[in-house]
Nucleic acid binder design. Structure first.
Lengths: 328, 328
DNA sequence: AATGCTATTGTTAACGCAAACAATCAGGGT
DNA sequence: ACCCTGATTGTTTGCGTTAACAATAGCATT
């Protein structure tokens, strides 16, 4: 910086001003400085800058397996929003969501002086870790239950499940079976609750839900079981990947979709319209969640606002995997 | 740090040593210092540390849309490997891979003092940007053609295409049609070349390849066209998502898979075994690519080695979407 | 007891930048 | 000509850490 200053015939401080508050420097000197910067290929040192300002321009994201469609999209949304505000995003994947692993991940990020963290924590078991977040680091949680000290951004999973279930009932099905996600996942639990409440509101029988693990494999396995029961005419599957497996199981068992059995998924993955048949599903806007999480975090970093909890409404997308039940 | 030093009755330098080179400090003083650190809740300031050491402990990853399965998995592999070596990973997504956008992304990362960058750049048009990388920043490229100044880690796409094509020929098909990826993608081009060379090596007719855009939708669209041609008995599709669309198109046209038409995909996405029928495909180990890229980058950062180009061999996975051609 | 080592700890300075305050400059009014 | 004001630029200082060197302590050897 000193070299630049000398070349432009000004002091180092003026160079600093040109870079940070250009409007406070006369246009002609500003031009001289910029020219010198260009000629010397000068790049400010971010470490020195954060040392003195206390700001790093970096955010942390703690996530469970960003290979999954949901977390990957959320991360993408966060990164997009962060980029427009000149923040960089640093990620830490955790293989388990418990108090220890979350604490460690947050500490690693904090050691890098991130200004705040977004924790994508859709597990019940993460709750403990989330309650013990350091109080001095701005944090936002995605997809957790409310009631934390940190703001939460989430999709209203239960509402989505209600819509899926009502849709199937409105087509004339007597009741709706449910292939749920793993017990520890908050989203899975909320979808079960939504499904159950929708059935109960109409006074329908509530079958025992099955438990999958989100994978197409588990959808296939449980799908075979459901296919054997002629009573089953409508299935609400907790995500599209499992629904993919269910579709295959039904087909192998000779049950046609949607003539014999209707299927609704959850997520609306990009392939959903091109499965066979095109899958009716509940779309959650992960990118929007990411954007929202970033907004909340920014408010926190800037010291604004309290502990808002924001819900995003999911949207039912009706395609060809749902229809009226067969006439017996 | 001064406070910790005082509390432990040592100098600040000793505190620094306890944290960085604990073996150089007597066990009892080390214990005292650690105790003081704990009591005061002291955390070293990474900005000050990198200011003086010139190392930040952060890597950058520039990628095109980490929502896609391949880039997401690669990123995951990089992050995993980085974590075991105490590096943190900062990501920048770019929406286009040209010289300008790559340069900008790299500059943003460099402004944050990353020690090196991995560029996931499977586009032909990225080549220009990759040739103009700053020479003073360690960089590794994933999925580009060789011939750069930076090391390249890539899956041998052509070899995978050869395997897929040979597999179909060995089942008795006269020739193999190809639904390729977008022209600008290096992987797409390499797969076309592999497919073509495998056909030519056997003296088979080489049909005009179709061009999709990786999406299930484009697979569906082109699949309908292929389904109309009774000559078509074997299709090599450049990725699994498009193959998903092709399967649906064939089904709608009344052509059975694999009895009438065989289909091979590429990638082996987690859902591939649960499509209907289970998809034969070429598996590329993205996680391994990520790990490899990190290794190469680490060598670069540590000043070891030259410009190695490493290829990973993909693996053909035969499932139920391929079989012998129909007897005419 | 003196010597020479090694292990351990301390002191000084510098990393590159921006905050706070100080100085200077240009113009407007009297 | 003089003072006042606001705009612009400069000077000093400190952010928290570690590298480099200096000093001391501890111990074995003669």
């Amino acid at each position: 910086m000193e070299d630049v200053a000398e070349r432009a015939g000004v002091s180092a401080m003026t160079v600093s001003r040109v870079l940070n508050t250009p409007e406070k420097v006369r246009p002609d000197t500003r031009a001289r400085v910029l020219e010198a910067v260009r000629e010397l290929g000068y790049r400010p040192n971010s470490a020195a800058r954060s040392l003195v300002t206390g700001r790093s321009g970096a955010l942390g994201v703690v996530s469970f397996d960003t290979t999954l469609y949901g977390p990957a999209s959320t991360l993408h949304g966060i990164e997009q929003a962060a980029r427009t505000h000149d923040y960089l995003v640093t990620i830490v994947n955790v293989t388990a969501l418990n108090r220890h692993s979350i604490g460690e991940a947050v500490n690693r990020l904090r050691a890098q002086s991130v200004e705040g963290v977004v924790i994508v924590a859709p597990h019940e078991s993460a709750a403990d870790g989330l309650r013990h977040l350091p109080g001095d680091l701005p944090a936002v949680v995605v997809g957790a239950r409310a009631g934390l000290t940190a703001p939460v951004a989430a999709v209203d999973q239960a509402a989505g499940a209600v819509r899926a279930t009502r849709h199937l009932l409105s087509l004339g099905h007597r009741t709706v079976w449910h292939l749920a996600g793993p017990p520890d996942w908050i989203d899975a639990g909320a979808r079960v609750e939504g499904w159950r409440s929708a059935l109960e509101a109409e006074g329908r029988e509530v079958p025992e839900p099955l438990r999958g693990d989100w994978s197409a494999r588990s959808g296939f396995d449980h799908g075979r079981q459901l296919a054997r029961d002629p009573q089953v005419t409508a299935i609400f599957v907790a995500n599209d990947h499992m629904a993919t497996g269910v579709l295959r199981a039904l087909r192998e068992a000779g049950r046609r979709v949607p003539q014999d059995v209707s299927v609704v998924g959850f997520d609306d993955v990009p392939e959903a319209p091109y499965l066979w048949p095109p899958l009716s599903t509940v779309r959650q806007n992960f990118t929007e969640i990411g954007r929202l999480a970033f907004q909340l975090l920014l408010e926190r970093i800037d010291g604004r606002a309290g502990v808002p909890h924001r819900m995003i409404e999911p949207e039912l997308v009706v395609r060809e995997s749902t229809g009226a039940p067969p006439h017996p």
